[in-house]
Nucleic acid binder design. Sequence first.
DNA 1: CCGTATCCTGTGGGATACTG
DNA 2: CAGTATCCCACAGGATACGG
Lengths: 133, 133
Amino acid sequence: MAEVTPGAGVPPRIRERGAVREVLDRVGDKWSMLVIGTLRADPLRFGELEQATAGVSQRMLTLTLRRLIEDGLVTRTAFAEVPPRVEYGLTDLGRTLVPLVMALAEWAMAHHEQINAHRSRHRSGTADAPSRP
Amino acid sequence: MAEVTPGAGVPPRIRERGAVREVLDRVGDKWSMLVIGTLRADPLRFGELEQATAGVSQRMLTLTLRRLIEDGLVTRTAFAEVPPRVEYGLTDLGRTLVPLVMALAEWAMAHHEQINAHRSRHRSGTADAPSRP
DNA sequence: CCGTATCCTGTGGGATACTG
DNA sequence: CAGTATCCCACAGGATACGG
């Protein structure tokens, strides 16, 4: 982590916190990461993206894409054809996020069962928490 | 649940998607990642956590911690003293998330300026998007 | 000191219908 | 096909006040 950066008077912990908050506000929503992961291989059309990202509404897909385009993570290419065709793909910047998305996916697949188990245990019995808040 | 079993009828892409959605629903909120990152070194008391996680309200810190405890990512240890003392720390499972948080932090610090620049450009001029949706 | 309870607001996000 | 517009609800999350 860039401790070398001349942070002047700002402690690195604070800068890190702000940065994490920023990135979470941007890609921590319900669909951004999923869209980026879906586009990791090659560009897709709107409809393809809609199908691939099962469960997303047109509205949210549009909004998500707009935000990602504004942030410079995704490109939008409209072909002047009939019927109209639009393709979305990752920018170089967007591609730098792909490893993180994949890491997140791997972590999730590796541990979500364990998490669900632990959660269920708490929900039902609360068998092992004597000092329950 | 037998990951060794080849995904029967379910394509791996789908499982991955579901897992990503799940993990994002759990740690993709406003404070969870931040709390985990803050606890990465050693356990902290409630008040310390509140100060370290600048901007969090008591309510949200409580709720966030409860969810993390339920999911088995964080431990809560209450010492029967006067005045009362409570310490929160990461479980082994929680610790497996730390590298991801750090990676996210590094990505954010490396690219947030570029993102902000791109966003500003779009907000003001929209100088380079002829076919604006 | 460590929370919980209550109230209140903004907004994320779904459903649906319409346009170019 | 690729969106936009509108309505509406649920809930994340802040402020404040109170309990153990």
